[in-house]
Design a protein around this nucleic acid. Structure first.
Ligand SMILES: Nc1ncnc2c1ncn2[C@@H]1O[C@H](COP(=O)(O)OP(=O)(O)OP(=O)(O)O)[C@@H](O)[C@H]1O
Ligand SMILES: [Mg+2]
Length: 874
DNA sequence: TGTTCTTAAGTTTTT
DNA sequence: CTTAAGAACA
C-alpha cells in the first residue's frame, strides 16, 4: 500500500479505532463493541496496517465464520492494499476452509490421505444409520439396557423415554463432542454414544472421509503435534469472535502459537450461533489465555439513525442474561433521523410479501432516484421464507440476489449429478455409491446393496466389489442373473466420466464433458421431474451447474503456501469442485454485486448493512420454538442483529395468518416487538395499508445521512391519493389516541419511465447459477426459487405470462383501475393493547388486491384478485 | 426382491 | 406441502 493511502486510511479512524489499528505488531488485542461501531473496519484496517508494516500476506491468518464474511473482508483488504499478493497468499477464510487447506497441505503428518472427502449431513446420517443397525452396536446397546424399536436405528431406555437414541440425536451429540475438546473422555461408561462414536469414527476414517467437525478437530491434532507448520505465522485476526466454539478458540490459539500476535473483535450481544456451539464466553476466555490482552472498546456507531439504535438498545436490555456491559448505542445523526422502526401488520403471509415488494418499489419511486434496489435487504429467519419472498419479487420484477445458498447443491437433480462425480473421484465414497446405484432404477434394491456391502473388506472397496460382480468373479446364492449386467452399465458410465476427466484433470473442460455425459445418460431432470414444466426447470438447473463448472476458477478461491513449506498437493478440478460445493465457498457470485435487492437469512447478513432493511415474519412461533430462556435470548439477539443492519429505515412485518404445511394458522407478533408484552419497546405498530413512504422531508434527511444527493419533488402527481372512507375506519376513531391517516397510496405499481430504467438489469455473459435473474426478458428461471423436488405449483408463473406482470402491467390499467380498499390508520406512539388491536385489524382489507394473476391457485382465502370489484361498493 | 401406492410425520440458523 | 417409511403389488 502506498504511504499516503495508508495515511488516508488511518485518518479516517476515530481515536479508539486508531489505537487498535496501530497497536504494536506483537500485541494481543481484543476489540469489544456493539454493532456498527467499526469493528470490522478496524480489523480490516489493522490487517492493512500490518501488511504495510512489512508482514507478508502469507504470514497472516484471518478467520471468519461464514463464507460471505470472508468474501467481504477479502475484497475490502484487496481494495485497500491494491492486492500485492493478498489474493494469492493471504490466509483468509472460514475456520473450516483454512483448516482444510492445512490438512491438505500437511495432513500426511497425521496420517491423512491426500484425497480428503467431506461428509455432508446426509452422508453423516446414512453412516450413522448403518452403524446403528450393525450387529455389534445393536448388541452393545442392548447390553446397556436399551430397547431397539423394531428393525429401526432407534433405541430407548424404558426409564427414559424422552431421550431416544436415534441417528439424528447421535449426530448432534457427536458434533457437540468434537466442538468441545476433551469432552470425549468424559463420557460416562454406559453412555450409548461411546460405542456409537467409536464405530462411527472408524467407519468414517476407513472411508477416508472427514465430517465438518473433523476438519476442525484434525486441524487441532495437526497443530498440536506439528506446531512447526505454523512457525511462520506472524498475525492471527478473527472477526465476530463471539461466534467461536470451544474448538475454534483452541484453533485460534494454536494457529497463533508461534508468536501469539492475535487480534480478535466481537460483540457478545450478537451471538447467534449457539446451535453451532458458539460461546461468547470465549471472549473472556481469551484474557485468561493471554493475561496481557489489551481490550479496546468502541463507542460510536456510524451506521444507524438514533431511533434505530434506541430501539436496539431497549430490545437487548430485556435479555435475561447478558455477557457484555450494558451500553447505550450512540449514533452520529443529530436529531433522530427519519423515525422509529415500523412494525407492520398484514392479513396473511402473501400480502406481507407483496407489501414488502411494493414498499421497495414505492420507496425507490418516491426517492426520485436516491434509492436503488441494492439499498434494500430482506432478512428472514429461515431460508424457506426467503423462497416464498422470491416468488413475489419475481412477480413484481424486482431484481434480487440471495445470500448464503449452500442448499443450492441440495436439489435432487444436482445432488445426483454431484454424487456421480463423487463416485468418479473416489471409489471409496460409499455414501455416494449407495445413493446413485439405483438412480435411475437398475433393480438394485436394499437387499442387493446389503449383500454387496458385506463383501467389502479393508482392501476391496465397494467399487472393487462391484467390479468383481460385473466380471462374474463374485456371486452368491439368490443373486439376480441380471445383476452383473446392471452393475456393468453403472461402472461403464463412471469409467466414461473418469476418462473424460483424466484427459486433463486440472482443467474444467473434461469435467464439463463428464457432466454432459451424466446429464444425457442419467437424465436426472426426468427422474425427478413431476410435470413437464418442472422437468424443464430441472434441466435448466443442471445446465446452470454445467455452465458454473465450466467457468468457475476454483483455484482462485484459496491461498497458496510458500514452496519452502513443502510440495503442495495438486488438486484436480474435480476435487476442487467437490470441496467448494461441500464447504459452500465460491458460491457467492463473482465480481461486483449488481444493483439488486438482497435476500438473506439474518445469520448470513451479520456484519453487513443497508439503508433499508425489512425483517419479515416476526411471529412468535417462527422466531422462538420453545420458551427456554436461552432460546428466547438468542431469538432476541437475532432480532437485534437484523435491526442493527439498517442505516435509515427499518421495517418489521408480520402476518396475522400464515400458511404452514398447507394449513392456515393464526399467529402472534413476536413478543419483543409487542408493546403490550414488552412495553419498553417504543416502536410503532401500524396496519399494512398505513405503510407509506417517508415524506420528502424525511427522505431529505435520509439522503443527508447517506451522503447522497436528493432533489425534493412533488409526489402528488405520481402518487395521487385515493381515499376510501369505509365503515371500518369509524370503528377506530373511537380510540381517541390513535388518529386516522390517509396515507399516500404508494402501493400502486409505478409506471413511469424512470421506473423502467430501474427495472431488472439484463446480465450479459456467464451467470453464476447463484445470482437470480428475474423479470421479463430473463432467459432462465431463477433456480434458487425452487426446492429439490418441488411440485409444479412451486413455480407459479409460466414464462409466457411473465411478460405481463410486474411494473409493466399497471400501465394498462393505470391508476384508475386500481381499487384497493385503503383504510389508513396509524397508531402513533401510544398503542392500544393487543386485544383491541387485533380485532381492528382483522377486518382490514387485503393490500395485495392488485397482485397479478399467476396461477397461485392455492387458497381460496384470497378471492380472485382483479374481479374484486366489491370494493367500489364501499 | 424391487417398485409403486398409501399414510403418517415434520422444519430453523452454517460449515 | 413435502418426505420418509410401511403395505400391497408385480
Ligand atoms: N471512524 C469511522 N468514520 C466513519 N465511518 C466509519 C468509521 N468507522 C466505521 N465506519 C462505518 O460504519 C459502518 C459500520 O462499520 P463496520 O461494519 O466495520 O462495523 P462493525 O462494528 O463491524 O458492525 P457489526 O457489529 O454489525 O459487524 C461502515 O459503513 C463503516 O464504514
Ligand atoms: Mg463487523
Amino acid at each position: 500500500m502506498e504511504g499516503d493511502q495508508m495515511e488516508k486510511m488511518i485518518n479516517s479512524l476515530n481515536s479508539a479505532q486508531h489505537q487498535a489499528v496501530t497497536a504494536p505488531l506483537d500485541s494481543r488485542l481484543q476489540i469489544l463493541a456493539g454493532p456498527g461501531t467499526g469493528k470490522t473496519k478496524t480489523l480490516t484496517s489493522r490487517a492493512c496496517y500490518l501488511l504495510h508494516r512489512g508482514v507478508r500476506p502469507q504470514k497472516m491468518i484471518i478467520m471468519t465464520f461464514t463464507n460471505h464474511a470472508t468474501k467481504e473482508m477479502k475484497e475490502r483488504i484487496i481494495a485497500m492494499t491494491g492486492d500485492r499478493g493478498v489474493s494469492r497468499f493471504l490466509k483468509i477464510g472460514t475456520f473450516h476452509s483454512i483448516c482444510l487447506r492445512y490438512l491438505q497441505m500437511f495432513g500426511s503428518k497425521i496420517g491423512l490421505g491426500d484425497r480428503l472427502v467431506i461428509l455432508d449431513d446426509a452422508d453423516k446420517d446414512s453412516v450413522l444409520q448403518s452403524v446403528m443397525t450393525s450387529e455389534v452396536v445393536v448388541s452393545q446397546l442392548e447390553k446397556l439396557g436399551y430397547k431397539r424399536a423394531d428393525k429401526k436405528a432407534v433405541f430407548q431406555m424404558e426409564s427414559d423415554a424422552e431421550n431416544k437414541v436415534t441417528p439424528k440425536s447421535m449426530s448432534k451429540r457427536i458434533s457437540w463432542i468434537k466442538n468441545h475438546p476433551g469432552s470425549l473422555n468424559q463420557l460416562k461408561d454406559k453412555d450409548p454414544l461411546r460405542v456409537i462414536y467409536d464405530k462411527y469414527q472408524s467407519q468414517v476414517s476407513m472411508l477416508d472421509m472427514l465430517d465438518f467437525d473433523d476438519i476442525l478437530t484434525r486441524a487441532i491434532d495437526l497443530l498440536t503435534d506439528h506446531p512447526e507448520v505454523v512457525n511462520d505465522i506472524e498475525a492471527v485476526l478473527v472477526d465476530e469472535f463471539q461466534d467461536s466454539s470451544p474448538v475454534q478458540l483452541d484453533l485460534t490459539r494454536l494457529f497463533a502459537q508461534a508468536r501469539k500476535h492475535v487480534t480478535v473483535v466481537g460483540d457478545p450481544d450478537q451471538s447467534i450461533y449457539s446451535f453451532r456451539y458458539a460461546n461468547p464466553e470465549n471472549l473472556k476466555a481469551l484474557s485468561t489465555e493471554y493475561p496481557d490482552l489489551e481490550v479496546i472498546y468502541l463507542e460510536q456507531n456510524y451506521r444507524s439513525t438514533q431511533p434505530i439504535l434506541d430501539w436496539a438498545t431497549t430490545l437487548i436490555r430485556e435479555s435475561s442474561f447478558r455477557l457484555g456491559a450494558d451500553r447505550k448505542l450512540i449514533g452520529t445523526s443529530l436529531n433522530g433521523g427519519p423515525g422509529k422502526p415500523l412494525i407492520v401488520t398484514f392479513r396473511d403471509d402473501k400480502s406481507e410479501s407483496y407489501g414488502i415488494g411494493r414498499q421497495i418499489l414505492g420507496l425507490i419511486q418516491a426517492s426520485g432516484g436516491m434509492f436503488a434496489f441494492d439499498d434494500f435487504a430482506i432478512l428472514s429467519r429461515t431460508r424457506e421464507w426467503n423462497t416464498k419472498l422470491e416468488l413475489v419479487l419475481n412477480e413484481l420484477s424486482i431484481p434480487y440476489r440471495t445470500l448464503g445458498l449452500q442448499r443450492f447443491w441440495d436439489r435432487a437433480e444436482i445432488r445426483t449429478l454431484l454424487d456421480y462425480l463423487r463416485v468418479v473421484n473416489s471409489g471409496k465414497d460409499r455414501p455416494a455409491i449407495v445413493r446413485t446405484i439405483n438412480v435411475p432404477k437398475r433393480s438394485i434394491g436394499p437387499s442387493t446393496m446389503t449383500a454387496l456391502l458385506e463383501k467389502v473388506t479393508e482392501d476391496t472397496s465397494l467399487l472393487n466389489v462391484m467390479e468383481q460382480v460385473a466380471m462374474g468373479e463374485l456371486k452368491w446364492g439368490g443373486m439376480s442373473k441380471a445383476l452383473p449386467g446392471k452393475i456393468k452399465g453403472y461402472l461403464d458410465l463412471v469409467r466414461r466420466c473418469r476418462d473424460h476427466i483424466n484427459e486433463d484433470p486440472h482443467s474444467t473442460a473434461g469435467l464439463v464433458k463428464a457432466v454432459d455425459v451424466l446429464i444425457s445418460e442419467i437424465k436426472p431432470h426426468e427422474i425427478y421431474g413431476v410435470s413437464q414444466e418442472n422437468t424443464e426447470n430441472r434441466k435448466k438447473n443442471l445446465e446452470e451447474v454445467r455452465n458454473f463448472i465450466g467457468s468457475c476458477d476454483t483455484s482462485a478461491e484459496t491461498f497458496e503456501f510458500e514452496p519452502e513449506q513443502g510440495q503442495d498437493v495438486a488438486m484436480t478440478a474435480l476435487q476442487l469442485l467437490l470441496q467448494s460445493s461441500s464447504l459452500g465457498s465460491g458460491q457467492e457470485g463473482e465480481g461486483k454485486p449488481k444493483k439488486v435487492v438482497t435476500l438473506s437469512t439474518i445469520h448470513s447478513a451479520k456484519g453487513l448493512e443497508w439503508p433499508v432493511v425489512f425483517a419479515p415474519h416476526c411471529v412468535d412461533a417462527h422466531l422462538v420454538r420453545c420458551n427456554d430462556m436461552k432460546e428466547v435470548d438468542e431469538a432476541r439477539r437475532l432480532l437485534f442483529v437484523a435491526g442493527t443492519r439498517a442505516k435509515a429505515l427499518l421495517y418489521f412485518t408480520w402476518p396475522l395468518n400464515y400458511t404452514s404445511y398447507g394449513r392456515s394458522e393464526s399467529s402472534q407478533l413476536i413478543k419483543f416487538l409487542d408493546r403490550a408484552r414488552s412495553p419498553a419497546i417504543g416502536s410503532t405498530v401500524i396496519s399494512a395499508t398505513a405503510m407509506k413512504t417517508p415524506t420528502q422531508g424525511q427522505l431529505e434527511q435520509i439522503a443527508k445521512l447517506l451522503g447522497r444527493p436528493f432533489t425534493p419533488h412533488r409526489q402528488d402527481t405520481l402518487q395521487s391519493t385515493i381515499q376510501h372512507t369505509s365503515k371500518r375506519t369509524v370503528q377506530h376513531s373511537s380510540s381517541g389516541r390513535s388518529h386516522i391517516q390517509h396515507p399516500r397510496l404508494w402501493s400502486h405499481v409505478p409506471h413511469t419511465q424512470s421506473m423502467h430504467s430501474a427495472a431488472p438489469p439484463k446480465y450479459k455473459g456467464f451467470q453464476s447459477p447463484l445470482i437470480s435473474q428475474p423479470g421479463p426478458g430473463s432467459t432462465s428461471q431463477p433456480i434458487s426459487a425452487k426446492r429439490p423436488s418441488s411440485q409444479q405449483s412451486s413455480h407459479p408463473l409460466p414464462t409466457s405470462k411473465r411478460s405481463n406482470i410486474g411494473p409493466v402491467s399497471s400501465q394498462r390499467g393505470g391508476l384508475g383501475s386500481f381499487q384497493s380498499p385503503v383504510v389508513g390508520m396509524a397508531f402513533q406512539s401510544p398503542v392500544v393493547g393487543m386485544a383491541g388491536f387485533q380485532s381492528a385489524l382483522s377486518v382490514l382489507g387485503d393490500d395485495a388486491t392488485n397482485r397479478p394473476k399467476g396461477k397461485t391457485s392455492d387458497r381460496p382465502i384470497s378471492k380472485t384478485p382483479t374481479k374484486k370489484g366489491d370494493k367500489s361498493g364501499d
